[in-house]
Write a protein that binds this DNA or RNA. Structure first.
Lengths: 337, 337
DNA sequence: CTGAAAGCGCTAACAG
DNA sequence: CTGTTAGCGCTTTCAG
């Protein structure tokens, strides 16, 4: 009942250890007959190489880490699945690591992925505490790529989607529908993405000779925030004909608020969200929104990281374009000025 | 610029390699002065032990894997965070692995967590293809625990929450509010949990001398399914005073459907969901629902798994109790019969 | 309390 | 094409 090791394979197949290792790694040339013997022995013994020994001997693990904070996000889900697949195609395995902000001892950043040399590289997925994390990675010289970085001038390799364009497109869509009284609920101001989307919103308006109706920042994303903001607007007699929400949750909240006061969407009010979370396509009316190119994000991140690991020096960050998804929550403006 | 190894620490601290290893592992007794020397050297050198070498030498990795399929779930998120923390407290690290159903070659179940001996044990989180996965784990003799198993008679160790009780409590809540015309939208029938919840629903009704108004299974969970079911009910003149939905998404869909026809919730219709997803507490009205004890699930899973790894033989699966969360979507029945 | 010696299982030059 | 010889970096008996 002992564990079968490469030696058992050697014995059973009759060839030398090195030859076995060779067929294991598809390396060099091995006489076909020998290769078959080895393969057969491996099969008979149900042998699988010990990964620790492998890693030790070759100095790399074949593992890529991906650090994230939450499992409650459609976009993350999409990215991670793509990364998983791309990595697999390249012969790597993916291990996710949950980043829990350590409240106590800041010296105890035990998040294994970088604490030890367990991975060959890391993809950092939209971490709030990105700055410190990245600093550690640099110190430990672990190759990494950041998806959706929050720090602007990060000299690290990043994969991003152009939030400015996203805000611009969203707002242009509204303008093209004839809207002129366009409000914006934004998220927490300290997010780079939030500021960028707002900038896009402002640009689209000024390009059209319009000016922002009102911009409200919220403490957090989420339905409740959107609801509250919209309620406040109404209390102040603020009735836009269209709203650009910086997040689908906010958008849903806004819709609920206006609907609860008898407004019809999109007849009385157009609403556009951001991110295309699952529920966006499911609620009524289906939400018009801006979708992040999840597949591309994942693929680019993997490509960049692998090149980095292979020592390539000339790599450049990538900025992807978001996509407008028109559904049922936006419509032509019927209100005359 | 070479990697610092334990030998560098030996040299710098002046003690033997073994002593260094001892302080590294807090093992045996080491003279305090020596311990300090070592610690200092480690610090000066910024030394971290090589995990591959460690794993190889001691035959275990200190890593626990958790396999799941999706990152779009509040409950999973809660469980995983708890598992992460519990594991950390026990000196283990957590690595998540995305399980993508391999469409092609079924022999190519490359999901690393069990493909190689990279982990000391595995937590399987609600896998659709549980059966095959578990079979592999058994064959490879990797210790594992399943959270939310879908196969009934699984002889494996499992951590579950009693879905029967959940359905029972949800329905009892409605009955206690005076409802008698209680409908049930259920999920896909092949889920064990779905069938259990329904069984609870039926039991609660029969205990109260009532009978099911209507039970409709859906092809999938989600808002859209709930919406469609409710619409169909209405078309058939089916007007319950309360609905027990097998899932928060379904519940939201039901609410939307009835609201769109002018019904007020909870005044004209009470709705209760299941799972307490994030949005449940955010939508309007806030959804009454059944919450899964995520923390307990995570903790028990970890406890069981670690005991299993330590060779303990007498372990038993655990069944946890769900919790009724009363919010705003359910109210006293005002309709006279 | 400490150190010398013997691996853990596999890969990587280097000669045949 | 194949085998010999060294390690990879650390833990673990087993004597001091």
């Amino acid at each position: 009942m002992k564990k079968v090791s490469i030696l058992d394979v050697v014995e059973k197949s009759g060839v030398s250890l090195v030859t076995v290792s060779r067929v294991l790694n598809n390396v060099g040339t091995v006489r076909e007959s020998n290769r078959q013997k080895v393969l057969q022995a491996i099969k008979d013994l149900d042998y699988r190489p010990n990964s620790a020994a492998r890693s030790l001997a070759r100095g790399s693990t074949g593992l890529i880490g991906l650090t994230l904070e939450t499992l409650k996000d459609t976009v993350f889900d999409g990215i991670v699945h793509t990364v998983n697949q791309s990595l697999e195609e390249s012969g790597y395995f993916l291990a996710l690591s949950i980043f829990s902000r350590t409240e106590g001892d800041p010296d105890q950043k035990t998040n294994f992925l970088f604490q030890e040399d367990r991975v060959d590289g890391i993809i950092v997925l939209s971490l709030l505490d990105e700055e410190n994390y990245v600093m550690e990675l640099k110190r430990k010289k672990i190759p990494f790529v950041i998806i959706d970085n929050h720090v602007a001038n990060s000299r690290a390799l990043t994969v991003n989607v152009d939030n400015y364009i996203g805000g611009l497109e969203a707002t242009k869509h509204l303008i093209e529908l004839g809207h002129t009284r366009i409000a914006h609920v934004s998220g927490p101001d300290h997010f780079l993405s939030v500021r960028e989307r707002k900038r896009g919103y402002e640009k689209a308006l000024s390009d059209a000779g319009l000016s922002p109706l009102i911009v409200t920042h919220t403490e957090s994303f989420g339905i409740r925030s959107g609801f509250d903001v919209a309620k406040t607007w109404m209390q102040n007699g603020m009735i836009p004909t269209a709203v650009f929400a910086g997040d689908d949750g906010l958008a849903l909240g806004v819709m609920e608020a206006y609907q609860s006061e008898g407004y019809k969407i999109p007849d009385d009010l157009s609403v556009i969200g951001y991110d295309d979370q699952v529920f966006a396509a499911e609620i009524h009316p289906r939400l018009t929104t801006i979708r992040q190119p999840m597949e591309q994000m994942g693929q680019h991140a993997v490509r960049l990281l692998l090149k980095l690991i292979q020592g390539s020096k000339r790599n450049t960050s990538v900025v992807l374009q978001p996509e407008l998804i028109v559904r049922e929550s936006t419509a032509i403006c019927l209100k005359k000025d």
